[in-house]
């Protein structure tokens, strides 16, 4: 039977090896920093991609959220099949319906809404 003799670690190698607790703390701190950087990156992408402008889940937008949920389902047009009279009629109906729904907001974002008079602003040059 061969006896296993535990090899002693040389003094300089033991000194180089970081204690377990230090490694653990460094790992946790590193994870926190990486998580923070990822959160900042995702917030940047959320704001830059245009998703923030479509997000109605903010507390101040509850009324708008309710209105947005009331929109009717849209009947789309099939991408395959013959282009006969029935298909053309169906497309025309869907198209005009969608167009008239959009045109209801054709005056949207009118710049006059930011005019000085309704805001009670006066400016002299």
């Amino acid at each position: 039977m061969i006896a296993r003799v535990k090899q002693p670690i040389p003094d300089d190698a033991a000194a180089k090896k970081l204690p377990y607790r230090v490694t653990f703390v460094a790992m946790i701190s590193g994870a926190i920093v990486i998580a923070l950087l990822l959160v900042l990156l995702s917030m940047y992408l959320y704001n830059r991609s245009g998703a923030a402008q479509l997000d109605l889940s903010l507390p101040g937008l509850q009324e708008q959220r309710m209105k947005a949920q009331k929109t009717e389902r849209f009947e789309s047009f099939s991408a395959s099949g013959p282009l006969n009279e029935d298909a053309l009629d169906q497309f025309n109906q869907s198209y005009t319906g969608q167009q008239s729904a959009i045109l209801q907001d054709k005056d949207g974002f009118a710049p006059d809404e930011l005019n000085d008079e309704p805001r009670n602003i006066s400016a002299e040059k």
Partner: peptide
């Protein structure tokens, strides 16, 4: 707030 809703609807 009104613009946000309009943006969602138009989009």
């Amino acid at each position: 707030r009104t613009d946000r809703l309009l943006r969602v609807t138009l989009g």
